[in-house]
């Protein structure tokens, strides 16, 4: 399971980490009880400040996705089936919004007109090749 940072993205690094870990938890790739790496380890591996990763973990904790324990560190929190349903849907909506924001930021940066961007998305969704 890998976390990847896009340094060119307008999305702040802590949010990129949070979104990716949340998506993994939502999809079940990170099952409840799974240990996440210590903050210092992840920060060192990604070349980020400790506070950046700590913020991502805090956000995940406040969303009830992970729990921090003194002995075991940060682990994926257990969830009820009802929570699982609602949280998966919420995660999906949030991920969609993030993807759209990221896409929009990229098209703006590249100077692509809105109708061209929409055409590219339509082409991708209809199964054709995305417009270059």
């Amino acid at each position: 399971m890998i976390v990847e940072l896009d340094e060119t993205s307008p999305v702040p690094p802590y949010e990129q980490i949070r979104a990716q870990v949340a998506a993994m938890i939502g999809s079940g790739a990170l099952p409840p009880g799974t240990r996440l790496p210590p903050i210092r380890q992840l920060a060192g591996d990604l070349g980020l400040a400790v506070n950046t990763v700590a913020r991502a973990y805090r956000e995940l904790e406040s969303a009830g996705l992970v729990a921090s324990r003194v002995r075991t560190g940060t682990v994926v929190a257990p969830r009820t089936s009802q929570e699982l349903d609602t949280r998966t849907a919420a995660d999906t909506r949030r991920l969609l919004t993030e993807a759209v924001r990221s896409f929009t930021a990229t098209t703006r940066r590249l100077g692509i007109a809105d109708h061209d961007a929409l055409a590219a998305i339509a082409a991708e969704l209809s199964g054709g090749e995305a417009a270059g």
């Binding site: 399971m1 890998i2 976390v3 990847e4 940072l5 896009d6 340094e7 870990v21 993994m24 990170l30 240990r35 996440l36 790496p37 210590p38 380890q41 992840l42 591996d45 990604l46 070349g47 980020l48 560190g73």
Partner: peptide, 13 residues
């Protein structure tokens, strides 16, 4: 080396 795109495993060492 971290390379152009920083990425890391979520496996604790």
């Amino acid at each position: 080396d971290r390379g152009p795109h920083a990425s890391a495993s979520l496996t604790p060492r």
